[in-house]
């Protein structure tokens, strides 16, 4: 049994396929299920090493990315505790799009956020077709309208000036 070095919640790296807080919660639930199944199997096997049950893709990537070994029960318990803490503290950046966002695009955006803004940032996804294109970003204290609609609204004065100029020439 390999001893896994103790890690805190902030030491973990989230895999790209964990995009939202729901994904993270689902991964924690899956890990709790795996822990229960491994504990039951270990008791039935009389303490012998038991094979891992099937894991979800997100959990498997998470374990691989963070080089975690989960055969030890105490390690799993500690890991679950840390994951629960992580789930409670991850910063959420709400992003509203004009069209439904596909999984790959969301993963790419999550990667950019974790590399540029915060290593544990997750996305809260919204949909508003009136945005036309672009994204409407809401951070804890600010909003950033990066949509076409926002740009048109901010450029309205330019259009009015153009019309006034056109009237002046007539």
């Amino acid at each position: 049994m390999t001893e896994t070095p103790a890690k805190t919640a902030t030491d973990f790296t989230l895999p790209p396929n964990v995009v939202s807080k729901v994904d993270l919660a689902r991964m924690v639930n899956d890990f709790e299920r795996v822990d229960g199944e491994l504990t039951d199997a270990s008791i039935r096997a009389g303490g012998a090493t038991v094979p891992l049950p099937p894991l979800s893709e997100q959990l498997e990537q998470f374990l691989t990315l963070n080089k975690l070994e989960v055969t030890d029960e105490r390690t799993r318990t500690e890991l679950i505790k840390q994951l629960r803490s992580l789930k409670d503290v991850v910063p959420i950046i709400h992003m509203t799009f004009a069209v439904p966002a596909d999984r790959e695009s969301l993963q790419e955006l999550a990667q950019w956020l974790r590399s540029s803004v915060h290593p544990h940032a997750v996305i809260g996804v919204g949909l508003q077709p009136a945005l036309v294109a672009g994204v409407y970003v809401r951070t804890p204290n600010h909003v950033h309208d990066l949509s076409i609609r926002g740009k048109l609204e901010s450029s309205r004065s330019v259009l009015v000036q153009e019309l006034e100029a056109l009237r002046g020439t007539k």
Binding site: F97, A98, V99, P100, A101, D102, E104, S105, E108, L109, W112, S116, A133, G134, V135, V137, L146
Partner: peptide, 15 residues
């Protein structure tokens, strides 16, 4: 007119 994949580069650029 634009799907998400088409918008993604400009979104990342804006971000």
């Amino acid at each position: 007119q634009f799907d998400m994949k088409a918008q993604l580069p400009s979104i990342i650029k804006e971000l």
